[in-house]
Write a protein that binds this DNA or RNA. Sequence first.
DNA 1: AAGTCCCTCAACCGCCCAAGG
DNA 2: GCCTTGGGCGGTTGAGGGACT
Length: 267
Amino acid sequence: MGRQPCCDKLGVKKGPWTAEEDKKLINFILTNGQCCWRAVPKLAGLRRCGKSCRLRWTNYLRPDLKRGLLSDSEEQLVIDLHARLGNRWSKIAARLPGRTDNEIKNHWNTHIKKKLLKMGIDPVTHEPLNKEEKRTESSSPQPTENNNHAAENDASANSEDNSSSMLAENCSSDDSNLLDSICYDEALLDILLMDAAPLVDASWGIINPPENGNCGTMATALPSWEEDNCSWLLDCQDFGIHDFGFDYLNDNIELNAMNTLDIGDKN
DNA sequence: AAGTCCCTCAACCGCCCAAGG
DNA sequence: GCCTTGGGCGGTTGAGGGACT
């Protein structure tokens, strides 16, 4: 039998999103909130798979996203969390507000992995490569989930031998202090690693579908954005702020947004 | 200047899980 | 308990652009 495809493959557009499509998706979610991704393309007038819409939204259009490269401290935190959690990118991303699992995964594969290898550290086990070679010589099993946990325990049990301390010298003193406070406080880290509600969604959960069964509207969510963080608007890349009907936002925000759009235009 | 190689990252794919009927 | 469905996750791909020859 097999499961029904998440969308009708016929007539579904694939590939890069256009500014027009982004606009439609944003407009729809601003108006209706996030609900039933399968229905989103139809209701928003998009020839896209619902899954594709969700991905586009969560990885690129979501208002609470940070853009740009990971900072040293973020990178260090990723390394430390990876040593403990393995390739559970969503869990790692949940501890880095404004970052997506996809972004972290990409950054890991393209930057951090190489960095660790260059430093002689196995990016899988987070142990020195020569140590790893000795292990494989003595016919150790392939890395598994359990082995990752073993590495986790190893890392936390032997703070002098873990990747964090090896890499700490690469961080600025500020970064190190941040990491010291986050990574080496076992109690705090245990709390952070618990399956609590993801930090990244805390401010955004407000537009989840409301109890009344209707899709939530952005009307209730917008005030908190105005107060807290409208930086996401600055990151709208291919379209103007006015396209979303945000003219009523204050002048500074709009000015900043337009400045950023100028930068974006250069790309 | 042109061609090729390499790197980055947005997007897709397939699988898994939880919730609801 | 089984089936269906929606959503989420991790792995992989491929287009685009910069670096190199």
